[in-house]
Every structure is written in structure tokens, then in C-alpha cells.
Design a protein around this nucleic acid. Structure first.
Length: 270
DNA sequence: ACCGGAGCCTGTTAGC
DNA sequence: TGCTAACAGGCTCCGG
């Protein structure tokens, strides 16, 4: 589910409420949620630690603790994080819950249980292999062109490869390619400099717009305050198979690419 | 190096 | 209306 914009929205929402608070307890009812330590060890090591900062890297959330360790969370397909008053009714899908500051909880709600929690000395142990951040200054059009020509792969699956570029998922890959009028079935090293520059712009445009709109809530994604995002209403191709392309009016198609559903307009994406 | 398929889970939706 | 199969925003592992 959540891609870069949804994770970024979550991070921004959590910063407002969590910075400076101490973790006082951990509850878990699905041990596989927590990857590299037991629930007991996690509880022992983070209880009493203060949350010093919250960052995003790709689709990971990184909580830096005063104990000099980092709590790293990946929401995977159906995860969301909610900051709630402890008196809120129990959520049966909140498989991991952090008690923060006594009267509040950070609840990791995750219906499909794919989400993961790690406790590490250095966040690089988890996020070290990720590709560049698409919204960073350092991710230049020139760098992107070089990256694309360093591979011979189908464009769409390449954009989903987190070691190639971090944070893009199925929705925003399709949206960025549509914005740039580029066919998702193209080979990465066949893009001209102009096409590469346009796709670079499309990626940034689509991600920034989605952040501005607090992400896409197609089914389960929620902001930390429980409200949905708004970007789902602005999607041009994702989930729009059979509908007219908003740019040229031709029918949007859905195909499989890299075993992921891919939505595009065969008329205006060349 | 790259691709496709299976697996991890459960809920919702499309189709018969 | 009711059942079944397909599908879902992610990612990893495996074999070819």
C-alpha cells in the first residue's frame, strides 16, 4: 500500500505528536511483525527511551531514540500508524502498539501482517541498499539518465526496484510514466535525454503532488490522525482501466508487467 | 543480470 | 443472492 508520499505524510503527522515523548511499553500479538529481536528484548531495550527524531528513507520510517538505537518500521501493503489516546477502543488489527508517554499510543495497524519492525544500532543496516531519494537535490536529471542507461530493463519494473530508486511503488510508477507520456514497456536504456528528463520531472511532480494531498487512500491507508488522504481522486491512470485517458481520451489499459498490474494509455504513452 | 512465479496474510470485489 | 476466484499500495526467495 503505502509508497513514498504516504510514508512522508505519516512521518510529518507523527513528528507533531511523538517528538520528545518516551516509549514506556510495547504490546504485540503477532511476533513475526518484529524481525530481529523478540518482543521481550524490544521492550527491554526501548522502554524509557525518548524519541529524538523521525525520518523517512524510501518507504521506511526511522525513529531515532535517545538510547542511540533506531526503531525502523516498514508498512508494506496494508500498514498504517496511528497516534491515539489510550482510551480509544482497542484495534484488533493493531498488532504492535507502543505506549508513549503514558496516556497515548502509537498503534501499528496492519490487516495483512506484512509490515515489519526492526531495532538496530544503525538504520543503514536496514536501508543501506536503497537507491537515491527521488526528491533529494542530489537526484539530478543527469544522474537519472546515467542510471537508466546503466541498466537494460523494462522501465516499469525498474522504477519499482528500491535499490534502483527509493520510494516509488505501483501507483506512482504508473502515474509518473503517464505524466511523462512514456510507455511502461520501454527498455530503460532506450530513453533519449529529453525523455529521461521528462520522466525525472514526472516522478518529482507526481510525488510532490501526492505529498501535498496527504497521499492516496484507496482502501486502508490512513494518516496518523485517522483521516484519509486525497490523492486517490487525482490519479490519472492507476485503477482507471477502461476509462478514457484524461489527456487524449483513448481507453486506459491494464496489463501485467513484472507480475504487477500496470495501467497506461497505449495511445499517448510512447 | 534479469524475469517470472510462489509465498507471506486477510479483506474486498468481480464474475458467474 | 451466494459462492468462488481474483485481486490488492510490498518485498523476498528461488529456479531458469
Amino acid at each position: 500500500m503505502p509508497e513514498l508520499p504516504e510514508v512522508e505524510t505519516t512521518v510529518r503527522g507523527l513528528r507533531r505528536n511523538l517528538l520528545g515523548r518516551s516509549i514506556v511499553g510495547v504490546y504485540n500479538n503477532w511476533p513475526r511483525h518484529i524481525v530481529n529481536v523478540s518482543v521481550e528484548e524490544l521492550r527491554d531495550r526501548i522502554s524509557g527511551a525518548k524519541i529524538d527524531s523521525i525520518h523517512r528513507r524510501g518507504k521506511y520510517l526511522i525513529f531515532t531514540l535517545s538510547s542511540n538505537e533506531s526503531l525502523v518500521i516498514h508498512l508494506k501493503m496494508s500498514g498504517s500508524l496511528a497516534f491515539v489516546d489510550q482510551v480509544e477502543p482497542t484495534d484488533p488489527y493493531a498488532h504492535t502498539v507502543f505506549n508513549v508517554g503514558g496516556k497515548h499510543e502509537l498503534r501499528f495497524h496492519d490487516v495483512r501482517k506484512f509490515g515489519r519492525v526492526y531495532l538496530v544500532q544503525q538504520s543503514s543496516e536496514i536501508v543501506g541498499d536503497l537507491g537515491p531519494e527521488p526528491l533529494d537535490e542530489s537526484f539530478s536529471p543527469e544522474l537519472f539518465y546515467t542510471m537508466l542507461h546503466g541498466k537494460k530493463r523494462l522501465l516499469k519494473p525498474l522504477l519499482l526496484d528500491q535499490t534502483f530508486i527509493a520510494g516509488i511503488g505501483n501507483i506512482y510508477a504508473d502515474e509518473a510514466l503517464h505524466w511523462a507520456e512514456i510507455d511502461p514497456r520501454r527498455q530503460s536504456d532506450t530513453l533519449s535525454k529529453l525523455e529521461s528528463d521528462t520522466l525525472h520531472m514526472g516522478i518529482r511532480h507526481v510525488l510532490n503532488l501526492a505529498i501535498e494531498r496527504n497521499g492516496s487512500s484507496i482502501s486502508s491507508y490512513r494518516k496518523p490522525d485517522g483521516d484519509p488522504g486525497n490523492m486517490q481522486d487525482s490519479l490519472k491512470v492507476y485503477g482507471q482501466a477502461g476509462m478514457p485517458c484524461p489527456r487524449c481520451g483513448n481507453k486506459i489499459e491494464r496489463i501485467k508487467l513484472g507480475s504487477r498490474s500496470t495501467h497506461f494509455c497505449p495511445a499517448c504513452q510512447k
